[in-house]
């Protein structure tokens, strides 16, 4: 909204028989946009601030309805904001949007008619006059064209356009990425391909189990259990029960473990002493629990590198 145009102050009329209306309608201030340079089809909005004395309220039934006011002027929108009573005065803001369809041949002043509203306190009615306004309407084209035929040359049609698909494509891509990410998490958790090796790490599991069991002070049963765990890891890696006699075949099939061949042979010798020779204390001296654990960790490292 541009300048304040106080076109009418105290625009009021008393209905016959009522007390002087000046006491009821305090002010009607009209705020208008620029008053020039409107062409055919332009919309313009007038705003009126209406102040009434407190018991009086605007009658909503008296508001104009959006319609064609005459052959060139449409009232497009009517908006009434009630600001409530403050200091004994009831304030309203009335917004009126008009659209002009006047096609002038030269700049021409056009009038927007005044609007008569009414206010009531239940018993009395007073008229509230929103003043009219005028603006300059300008032509869009010259009257006589210099080039023949140009006067009848229409602006081109609006051509049909393709439906933009980029948004849908991006949404599709995002959904696929989300689904793929969820699938990856699921596969990792379930140990599916390509995470199947994560599950197949028997030495890692054995090392983890032994780290708990062989904590100080280590008992004989814990030592035996640790040996069993390592053997089970060898069995799982080889795919069958592995005994000292099978070790050459195992190293041929899993060359990565050649790096620890000596220690593995020592382990197998020790476990033979423990399980079949009944010399557990001697075996513990030959391969103390600490070294056993270190061997398990080396095996785990070899396994991790090999996978």
């Amino acid at each position: 909204m541009a300048r304040r145009l106080r076109l009418a102050f105290l625009a009021l009329l008393a209905i016959a028989g009522a007390t002087p209306a000046a006491a009821q309608v305090r002010a009607v201030d009209l705020y208008a946009p620029r008053a020039f340079g409107y062409v055919i089809g332009d919309a313009l909005t007038l705003t009126a601030d209406i102040t009434l004395d407190a018991p009086f309220t605007l009658d909503p039934a008296a508001l104009p309805t959006p319609r064609a006011l005459n052959y060139w002027l449409d009232l497009r929108e009517v908006r009434l904001d009630d600001h409530g009573v403050e200091g004994g005065q009831h304030r309203y803001t009335l917004g009126l949007t008009y659209q002009t369809f006047y096609a002038p041949l030269e700049p021409r002043r056009l009038d927007i008619p005044a609007i008569a509203l009414s206010a009531t306190d239940g018993a009395r009615r007073v008229a509230v006059n929103v003043p009219g306004w005028s603006f300059l309407s300008s032509p869009l084209r010259e009257v006589m064209t210099s080039t023949p035929g140009q006067a009848m040359t229409l602006r081109p049609d609006t051509a049909p356009r393709m439906i933009p698909t980029a948004g849908t494509r991006h949404a599709l891509l995002a959904s696929l990425v989300i689904a793929l990410g969820a699938l990856a998490v699921l596969a990792w958790q379930m140990g599916w391909w390509p995470f199947h090796r994560r599950r197949a790490r028997p030495f890692a599991m054995a090392a983890r189990a032994m780290a708990g069991a062989l904590g100080s002070p280590s008992s004989e049963s814990a030592y035996r259990g640790s040996l069993m765990a390592l053997h089970r890891a060898f069995d799982t890696t080889a795919g069958h029960g592995l005994f000292a006699e099978d070790l050459p075949g195992f190293f041929a099939a899993h060359p990565a473990f050649r790096a620890v061949e000596g220690e593995v042979r020592r382990l197998f010798a020790v476990s033979r002493d423990v399980f079949f020779g009944g010399d557990a204390p001697g075996a513990q001296r030959a391969l103390p629990p600490g070294e056993l654990l270190a061997l398990a960790r080396r095996l785990r490292a070899v396994e991790r590198e090999a996978s």
């Binding site: 599709l172 959904s175 689904a179 958790q189």
Partner: peptide
């Protein structure tokens, strides 16, 4: 992850 997978697949189907 199964829930997110189902949502993702449903979205992919819809947008596809």
């Amino acid at each position: 992850s199964v829930a997110v997978l189902v949502i993702g697949l449903a979205g992919a189907l819809w947008f596809g």
